[in-house]
Nucleic acid binder design. Structure first.
Lengths: 207, 207
DNA sequence: GTGTGTGAAGGGTTTCACAGCA
DNA sequence: TGCTGTGAAACCCTTCACACAC
């Protein structure tokens, strides 16, 4: 499989959501132009992105919304569900246990963990906060595929290390710190402070 | 001012945080190599990024952590505080009112709004959820600089429209939907489903 | 006629490599 | 000597433009 760029993958995920919207509105056919408009990019970009994975459209016609959605579902691995564990029983971690967009896309939160004795045992949206020291057993028991790190920055690397030992291969990190992991582990970042600071920059430098 | 790429700005924000870490550890000097290592990039990239804004280092020596941090603070506009409003009293919105990283960087949450009568008036980390219908007055009263959208996807555009009318020029959007705004308004996205789906893709396509 | 699929061109960002300065 | 600052080269991603299929 040839290497496909991160930005293409991210856009695929957006097309997927846009198609969902169109299907909700009973739209059966869509052009690359419309899809581009919905996502704020160019139609050439849409066609190029899709072309990396195959040919899904009909010339002079466009794409069938339902079948294109199915195709993207397959490409992104969304035809199945994924078991997700959250590390960190703070504000962010607890909020994510009930994030509807995750459920809708088949990401099932199976587990929330913390190392703080005061939090362990507490209920969060139907889950009990478990002891992070038991991460190995818990990850195995719940067959976790993806871990979300939502702990203070200073603890993030230690948490990641333990997740790697427990066999986790995919991490979404909310802590504002870059993580070092073995090459077979994928990390994605959700760095809210970075985006806020980008806004700060743009506000400060408006001419 | 010449156009500086988004990725450079984002990395500046990371350097800023890495420098903070070093200063905490009483480190006074840092090389582009070390900074690169901390952020998982190359030293050439670090030097190139910084060079867009000026020359901050000493050849054969490196950068003074404190003074470089000050410089980046100025570049990003972080020498001051920003007043922030959150729209959406759901899980995410409420969690963000108490996000320590925001406070630390001078983003002060002044306001949380919702249109749901059942939520209006409720307390969240010391703030009262206000009626989003009064957005114009509230934004003016609290002198809001930045708005965070944390409402369901289907309402995001309507909320954005009202924020624009209220005079907001910078938006951080957590709803998984691309927003249309006038050219003088900057929108950044925090799309957690996109990152999860990227992880799904990588898990599905490991050789 | 219409809109896709795609080589080729263009533009922008990253990496290289080294001159230059402490 | 050691590390920065930076043109030039390399690379990658986006846009163009049009042949082609429906």
């Amino acid at each position: 499989m040839k290497k496909i760029s991160d930005s293409t993958i991210r856009r695929m995920s957006k097309y997927f959501r846009s198609l969902d919207q169109l299907i909700d509105k009973r739209v059966e056919t869509v052009s690359s132009d419309t899809l581009a408009e919905m996502d704020g990019i160019t139609s050439a970009q849409v066609r190029k992105d899709l072309s990396f994975f195959g040919t899904f459209g009909k010339r002079g016609f466009g794409y069938n919304t339902k079948s294109l959605k199915k195709q993207i579902e397959n490409i992104l691995g969304l035809y199945r569900t994924w078991n997700v564990a959250i590390v960190g029983g703070g504000n962010i971690g607890r909020a994510l246990t009930d994030y509807t967009e995750f459920k809708k896309q088949g990401f099932i939160i199976r587990l929330i963990m913390d190392k703080d004795g005061a939090k362990i045992g507490k209920q969060v949206h139907g889950l009990t906060i478990e002891d992070f020291n038991k991460v190995n057993d818990l990850v195995k028991r719940e067959q976790i595929d993806i871990a979300i790190i939502a702990v203070p920055a200073d603890n993030a690397q230690a948490v990641a290390d333990k997740l790697v030992v427990a066999g986790i291969k995919a991490i979404l990190n909310f802590a504002p710190r870059s993580l070092k992991v073995p090459p077979d582990v994928t990390v994605k970042y959700e760095n809210m402070a970075v985006e806020m600071e980008a806004l700060s920059y743009f506000l400060s430098n408006k001419k």
